[in-house]
Design a protein around this nucleic acid. Structure first.
Lengths: 146, 146
DNA sequence: TCGGTATCGTGGAGGTTGTCAACGATGGAG
DNA sequence: CTCCATCGTTGACAACCTCCACGATACCGA
C-alpha cells in the first residue's frame, strides 16, 4: 500500500478547468468593460445575433447553462441598452424571443474583436489545431452533462 | 467582404471553457456536499494536505487564482470544521501557515474519491491520453496569465 | 540605527453570480 | 373543460469577486 500523497490538485481536471476559466473570464470582462458589457451579457447578445428571428429565453438559458431566471435580468439590461428587443413569436404567447437590434449587432462585432484580442493573453501559446481539439473536448464535456 | 455571421459563440474558447467549468463545478459541489465542503474549500484543503509544514495563505491565493481576502474566510471555515490549523512559521510572524489536521487529510481523501467519481459524469467520455493533454493545455493557459 | 517601503493577514463595501421556490399566463392532451 | 406542462418573471438567500484600507511585521538603504 502506497502511503504517500495521491494525485495533487494541480492534476485535477476540475480544478484546472475552473482556474483557467476564471482567468479567461477575468481578462474578457476587462476587455468588454469598454463596451459596457460583461461576459454573461455578451454571451446572450452573441446568441441573439446568431439568429434572424431571435431565440427564446429558455433556449438561451439551456445553451449557456444558466438558470432561466438569470436570463431575465440579462435581457433586461441588454434591452435597456438598446442592443436587443423582446418580441412575441407567432404561435406561442408564453415565450419571448430575444432579437438583436442593428446597434446590438454592431456592438457585438466590436466587442468580439476586443474580447478575442484580450484573450490572446492566456491563449496566445495555444496553436490553432490545439484550439480546435480543445473546443471539441469542452463541447463533449458539456454534452455529457450532469 | 463577407457579410455573414462571424464565428459563432459555440466556437468561442472562452465561452466553452466557462460553460464546461460551471458544469464540472456544479457536479463537484453536489458530491462534496456530503462532506460538508464546497469546491473552494476543498481546493484549499487539498493544497494544505500536499505539504508537510503547511502553505501560506498568500500562496494559496496565488495557486488558486483568488484574492487573498477570500482565502481568509475559507481557512476560517476549514479551521472551524477542524480540518486545518493556522500555524505561525519560524521566521516570519506576518504569515500564517495553513496546515492540514489528521482529520482534514482523511476528509480530503474521502471527498476526493466522491468528487472524482461524480466528475466522471461530464468527463466519462474523455480518454486518459486526452485528459493529460487537457491538463497540459489548461496549465499553459493559466501560466500565460493576465 | 533609523525611516521609508513592501508584504502578510484581515476586514468591509458593493456588485455579480448561482440556486431554489413560487407565481401568473399560456399551451396542449385527454 | 380539466389537468398538467411550459414560459417568463420575481424574490430570497448564499456564494463569489473586486477593490480598498488597516495594523502588524519584515526588509532595505541612508
Amino acid at each position: 500500500m502506497e502511503v504517500g500523497m495521491g494525485r495533487p490538485l494541480a492534476d485535477d481536471l476540475g480544478f484546472l478547468l475552473s482556474r483557467a476559466s476564471g482567468q479567461v473570464v477575468r481578462v474578457t470582462n476587462a476587455a468588454l468593460a469598454d463596451h459596457g458589457l460583461r461576459v454573461r451579457q455578451y454571451s446572450v447578445l452573441a446568441l441573439a445575433c446568431e439568429t434572424e428571428d431571435g431565440i427564446s429565453q429558455r433556449e438561451v438559458a439551456a445553451v449557456l447553462g444558466l438558470d432561466p431566471s438569470q436570463v431575465v435580468l440579462l435581457v433586461d439590461e441588454l434591452a435597456a441598452a438598446g442592443l436587443v428587443e423582446r418580441q412575441a413569436p407567432e404561435g406561442d404567447r408564453r415565450t419571448r424571443l430575444v432579437v438583436a437590434t442593428a446597434r446590438g449587432r454592431g456592438v457585438r462585432e466590436a466587442a468580439r474583436q476586443d474580447a478575442d484580442a484580450a484573450v490572446e493573453g492566456p491563449l496566445g501559446l495555444i496553436g490553432e489545431a490545439e484550439r480546435e481539439r480543445l473546443r471539441d473536448v469542452l463541447t463533449r464535456i458539456w454534452t455529457a452533462g450532469g
